[in-house]
Each structure stands twice: as structure tokens, then as C-alpha cells.
Amino acid sequence: MSVADRVAEHFGIELTDVRAVETGADRAADLFRGTDGAGTDFAVKWSANDSAAGLVIPGRLAGVAPGTVADVVRTRDGRLWTDVAGRRLSVTRWVTGTPALQGPLRREQWTAYGRLLARLHRLPVDDGLRAAVPAETYDPSRWVRAFDAADHAVTGVGRGADEIQERLAEGWAAGRGKLVEVRDRAVRLAAVLRRRPDLPAPVPCHADPHLGNLIATGDQSVVLIDFDDAVLAPPERDLMFVLGGGVLPFAPTTAAQQGWFLDGYGAVEPDADLLAYYRCTRALEDVADLAMVALDPTLDPPERAENLGYVEGVLGPYGLPAQALPDG
């Protein structure tokens, strides 16, 4: 059966046109843009992600802050998704607007962004959310293993390497000392955080609210998409994407932009250990995933070169290691 057939069967929507959409770093999902006979566009996601949080949390947020997330289309029997061939099939209304990375965002849009995350973090954590949304465990082993594997692969680049592999190995060698410091700090901070009795109460977090997942829909409005990594965690899990320069080395948030964001979010005194921990784990995740793509000679050279550029950005002065280390 085609994607259109499955959408018609489970959601009652007759799509006349379906196109695959590039999903970026999310290799666990296939995304399509479909259009029905009336010209209405929909986002159709077929995902292997085990968590249902990416649909449950936006459903809750839409109830208290309409227009801040993509509207979820329910199945014929009222569910947020359906299981097809062992994967989760879901449909949302396509969000029309300007991706924030094509910005720059206006002051009012930064403030709307802050207000959106504040509303998300104020959602009540009830039994329903606890059952559907993973909780923070302060276990960095997944990212440590990924970094170690990438480190082994990159440092093993030798004779016969192509130009991209050679350039990656050269830059990695220059920044490896800081990367190892980030790795070790993540492990130390995790042990400290697991023992702390005074951590902030967990709240619903998007967990990946960078500008690539933000769409400006009006002069004073934005929509946040792709909640697949949502988690119950301290607010710092999301705030690190703005505070201190954010996570995108090619688009660091300025002091003015951070101020505009806080105009909407409200005054905050972030926990230094939590911010450092989340920056460390994100840095490990980014360099590991990006480096493995750049190394892979079976992938298209433009994709590999793009990922190489991202690794070099992470290792540069605006990358997360520079924020994650105390002397950064």
C-alpha cells in the first residue's frame, strides 16, 4: 500500500499528491507532505521512534496555546497515531511560514518563542504524561558510547583516506583534547546530578527546540515542530538552546536575542550544573553523529561535506564544547 492509501484508510484523508521531505538528522523517520483535493497540506510522518511523546505533548500544548504547534489529525477512531508495519504513522496539518533559520527572527518572534517554551514548561505533569513521556535519568552512556565509537573511527583514519576523511581527522585531532574533556565532564556531572536532592522539578521539554524546528507564522507568532525527543526534565534541557549562545555554531544567539526570548519566557536563574551537563551530552551527540556521516564513503559527497562542516563548527569558537567546559 502507498502512503496515500494508508492515510486514507486510517485517517480518512484522501491525498491527491504525496512528496517525500528531507528529514535532516532524523534517520528513524520518513516524512511526507501530502495535499488533499481541497488544497490542504498535511505532514505525514512514519516513524520508528518508540516514544509517543512527540504527539502527546503537542496535543496538550495545543489545548492551552493554540497556534504554537502543528495541529494533530486524529485517526478515524480518535487516536493520535496508528501502528503500521511496526512503525508509528501520524498526520498533522502542514505549518505554513518561514523557517527561523531563514530569518532573522524579529524581536517579537523571539519573545513569542520564549512565551511558547514557558507555556510548554508549565503544562501539568499528570499520570497521563508520565506514562507517555520518558523521564530524564542523567545517564550519558548512550552519548559516551557514540562518541567513543566515532573517536575510534576518526583516529583510525589512515592511508587511502579520501579528502573529506583526511580533513575530518585533522580537525578532530586538533580538537580532540577538548572533546575528551567534554566526555569526562558529562560522566562526572551525571554522577553529581543523580545524587542531588535539590534538582528542579521535571517539566515537559521539547528537548530539541533549536531554530531549525521553529517556524515564523506571523510578525509576532512562531510554531514549534518535531517533538519526537520530548522528555520530562528540568527546564535547562530546553533553555540551553538559547542561553549562552545556543547550540548552533553557525547561528549563535546574540545577547539581544536572548534578552528578547526572556521577555517572553520570564526571568530565570538556570542551574549551572544542569546547563553544563546538557551542553556536554549534546556536544557528544552532535560530533558523533556528524562525524560518522562524514566518514562514510557510501554516502553522497555533498552530504558528507556538509556534515564535515558542521563538525568543524562544533569544534570552533561558537560550538558547544566552548560553552560546556568551565574554561570555555
Rank of each mutant, 00 (worst) to 15 (best):
A43L: 12
R122H: 15
T298K: 07
V242A: 04
R60C: 10
L295V: 12
R122D: 15
D30M: 09
T137K: 13
A153I: 13
T155R: 09
G175C: 12
P317K: 13
L120K: 02
T35Y: 01
H210M: 08
V95A: 07
R93S: 12
A251P: 01
E14S: 15
T298I: 06
E163M: 08
E269V: 15
A52Q: 06
G39Q: 05
H206S: 08
R27V: 15
L308G: 03
R159M: 05
P66F: 07
P124A: 09
G158I: 11
D263E: 14
W260Q: 00
G54I: 05
S221D: 15
T82F: 01
D296E: 12
A62E: 14
T75S: 12
E236F: 04
G175L: 06
P235W: 05
T298M: 04
L243K: 08
A25F: 08
G128H: 11
R74V: 14
G319E: 00
Y278V: 05
R142E: 14
F261L: 08
F147W: 13
T68Q: 00
G37A: 15
R196C: 08
D184L: 13
A4Q: 07
D26V: 08
G264Q: 03
I13Y: 01
G103M: 07
W260L: 01
A20K: 08
F241V: 10
A149C: 06
Q258E: 15
P297G: 04
G37R: 12
G59S: 09
A272T: 14
W172M: 05
A53E: 02
T82H: 04
R185S: 09
A29P: 05
W260M: 05
A233L: 10
A169Q: 05
V314C: 01
A20M: 01
R130K: 13
G316F: 06
T155C: 06
A161K: 10
D26W: 03
V182H: 05
V157R: 02
Q220N: 14
Y318E: 12
E285V: 10
V125L: 10
E9N: 02
P317H: 11
R74Q: 12
D139M: 12
P134K: 11
T281P: 01
V222W: 02
R304A: 04
Y265N: 04
A216Q: 05
R142I: 15
Q220P: 00
A173Y: 04
E236D: 09
G78P: 10
D77G: 09
V3Y: 02
R188L: 14
W81E: 11
A267W: 11
A135T: 14
D327H: 12
L55E: 01
L120M: 10
L168E: 02
H121T: 13
V3T: 10
H210W: 15
L308Y: 07
V192C: 03
R279D: 11
I215Y: 03
A20E: 09
